[in-house]
Amino acid sequence: MKYQLVVIALVAASLVGCQANPVSGRQQLVLVSEDQAQASSAQAYTQTLSEAQKKGNLSTDAGLNNRVRRITDRLIAEAKLMYPPSRDWQWSVAVIDEPTLNAWCMPGGKMAIYTGIIQKLKLSDDEIGQIMGHEIAHALLGHGRERMSRAIAMQGGMQLGSILAGRDLSILAPVADIALTLPNSRENESEADRYGLELAARAGFDPRAAVRLWEKMSAASGDGPPQFLSTHPAPGNRIQALNALMPQMMPIYEKAR
């Protein structure tokens, strides 16, 4: 009975916090407001750049910085059309001089890309456009707020379950992470692939570059972990899904050119 009460409480919290995303239309668990997400992201962004500055890891390559800014400016212009509230975001992009193969965009448009992914993969402008389009799509689709909300729900669920069960259930957290968090993260990644591809196409970046990009990423990272334990779709599945979108995206790209 106690476990049934836990399930009922979690389902009730999920129903209260669910709302349709204005871009994708998908129902999301949203327990964190946009203002809260942006404030938290702005603080984390400032801290990240401050630490990079102290380590001398903020890129001073004017040509590279201008290149990245030129690409992201085109994407931001289209993002404001895709999701009008983003017109009020304080957009910003930094180039961090570290070897990691990574890029990201926080809620509110705080972005970064690492020199490692640009240099190691010898990325073209179209490929950088695809990477940053994907990352911006995460922000437009509210995935940051969704992740924060799921973390709150899981933490609250564990605490509530421990009280009702009369014992510590935190040992179940890794199981809950695999059962709940990772599948949704893969869904978010696939969603960002689709809308990021469209965003980049509208900005005039070749959709076919997304396939080339993930082929390079696959070659650079090897087989990686099994898809079941990965927050990203398996490279082969991802490339197959991107190829399936080409008939829809190429006309958008051709028109934007």
Rank of each mutant, 00 (worst) to 15 (best):
I239K: 12
G63I: 13
L199K: 05
R145I: 04
N57F: 07
K54L: 14
S124Y: 01
N243Y: 08
V211S: 01
I76V: 15
L81D: 12
D168I: 10
P85Y: 07
N184Y: 03
L242V: 15
F205R: 08
R167S: 11
A52R: 06
L58P: 11
A234K: 04
R67G: 15
S86K: 07
G116V: 11
R186P: 01
G116Q: 04
Q53M: 13
Q19E: 13
E78M: 14
P247A: 13
G224W: 10
C18K: 01
L31H: 07
L169A: 03
D88P: 01
L123R: 05
A209G: 09
A200D: 08
L64M: 15
A201L: 10
V30M: 10
I71R: 11
G236T: 07
S162N: 09
L229M: 14
S24L: 06
M132G: 05
I136G: 02
V23W: 03
G25L: 06
M111N: 08
L10A: 08
Q47A: 14
Q90D: 14
T100R: 11
H232N: 10
R145P: 01
I136C: 09
G157L: 07
L182T: 13
D126K: 01
V93F: 08
R194G: 04
D126I: 02
I178E: 10
R70N: 15
A153M: 13
L29P: 01
V211P: 00
V11Y: 06
V6S: 00
D125R: 01
D193E: 08
L58F: 09
I113G: 02
A151R: 13
T181F: 10
H232C: 09
K54A: 15
N243I: 13
P247R: 11
A112F: 10
Q227A: 14
E198A: 12
E135W: 00
G133Y: 00
E191P: 04
N102G: 12
A203R: 00
G142A: 07
L81C: 04
M154K: 08
S59H: 07
K255W: 08
R167P: 00
A179C: 10
R147G: 08
R70E: 15
I8K: 12
L49Y: 09
G204W: 02
P183I: 08
L101C: 15
L242F: 13
V30Q: 05
Y253P: 07
A137T: 05
A153I: 04
A256H: 13
E198S: 10
R69G: 05
A103D: 10
A173L: 12
I117N: 02
M154S: 11
G196W: 03
A77W: 07
M1H: 11
R67D: 15
P207Y: 04
E78S: 09
Q227Y: 03
P174T: 13
G129F: 01
T60F: 09
S230H: 07
D97W: 03
V7W: 00
K110F: 14
V211A: 02
A220N: 01
G142I: 05
S230G: 09
A62V: 15
Q248K: 15
D177H: 13
S149L: 11
I239M: 11
A13F: 04
M154G: 03
N65S: 13
P85L: 05
Q130D: 02
D193V: 06
Q19S: 13
K80T: 03
W91M: 03
A77C: 03
A94D: 04
G56T: 08
R208Y: 02
N188A: 14
L10Q: 06
A192G: 13
I128C: 06
T72R: 10
L245E: 15
